[in-house]
């Protein structure tokens, strides 16, 4: 929607609106600069302070390299799992009905509302050393994977669900009456319509898993080369006063996040066009 011009009758009003806009713009710019822009630029600047070779040396130390590899692989696995499970859960929430569905629908958002450190602790009560079901995932990669699944649970569900609600049932019924099998209907009609939402949800899960810290810090046990994810690695480097090393890995994370953000933007524009 294009911004409508103010129909100010008196010139005084026009000036006031202009001054208000300028003031607001100044405030927003200052706020964004102090809180987001300056600090994030400082990271990129710090990472490249020792030149390109210094940056390269910092991100290719064995520990940094293995932590980034693990983080990216785990994030891909998390995105794929969410694409399947999130779509499935959204389907059940929209097309199925059973007692308790409403509560389930509300509970899906709990991982967004729950502090991440609490999420980690909560998982440790079931999958930790004192597990009542004797499944110990603490200090293992599957443990970190479960923590990441927990915090990313709502993304795919919440992107797919509204599209599924809007989806016209007539098409599916028409296909069914023409003799299409259920699998064909799902593959040819439902899935193409859901695809942008599923991909957006997957990309959001990936970005979140990539940057997650709080829920993994307790369950990972912070073991380099085994369970240490990128954020935990950066935190360690800060505590060990290796700020340049921390900034280098952080720059890589920022770069990947930016690419994912752009991808989400492209997916959203694509889905609007359709």
């Amino acid at each position: 929607m294009p911004p409508a011009p103010r129909p100010g009758s008196a010139p005084g009003q026009r000036t006031r609106a202009g001054a208000g806009t300028a003031l607001g713009l100044g405030f927003a710019t200052l706020y964004m600069s102090i809180i987001v822009l300056l600090p994030l630029s400082a990271i990129v600047w710090k990472a490249h302070q020792a030149g390109w070779s210094g940056f390269w040396a910092d991100v290719t130390t064995p520990e940094a390299w293995s932590t980034m590899k693990l983080t990216i692989l785990l994030s891909i696995a998390v995105a794929l799992t969410n694409i399947v499970m999130g779509t499935l859960i959204a389907w059940v929430l929209v097309r199925d009905s059973f007692p308790g569905k409403r509560v389930m629908d509300v509970l899906i958002d709990l991982p967004f509302a729950l502090p991440t450190i609490v999420a980690g602790l909560v998982l440790l009560t079931l999958y930790g050393p004192t597990s009542p079901i004797h499944v110990t995932l603490a200090y293992t990669r599957p443990g970190v994977f479960v923590a990441l699944l927990f915090v990313t649970l709502p993304f795919c569900v919440r992107t797919v669900q509204p599209v599924l609600i809007e989806l016209d049932r007539d098409m599916e019924e028409a296909a069914a009456s023409l003799g299409a099998s259920r699998i064909t209907i799902f593959r040819r009609i439902v899935l193409p319509n859901l695809m942008p939402a599923i991909l957006a949800g997957g990309a959001l899960s990936f970005a979140r898993a990539l940057s997650e810290y709080g829920s993994t810090v307790l369950i990972s046990g912070n073991i380099p080369f085994k369970t240490q994810v990128a954020s935990v690695h950066i935190f360690n480097q800060i505590e060990n006063d290796n700020v340049t090393g921390a900034a280098a890995v952080a720059t890589v994370l920022l770069g990947v996040s930016l690419i994912v953000l752009l991808a989400i933007g492209v997916i959203q524009r694509w889905s609007v066009r359709r």
Binding site: V36, L40, S211, Y213, V243, A247
Partner: peptide
């Protein structure tokens, strides 16, 4: 401005903290 506002959601909290240390 519109694009930058979304940026913090994609940044790791630890990276945000590090960024603030480097400036302040």
């Amino acid at each position: 401005l519109n694009a930058l506002i979304d940026l913090p959601l994609a940044v790791s909290p630890v990276v945000a903290g590090l960024a603030l240390i480097l400036i302040y």
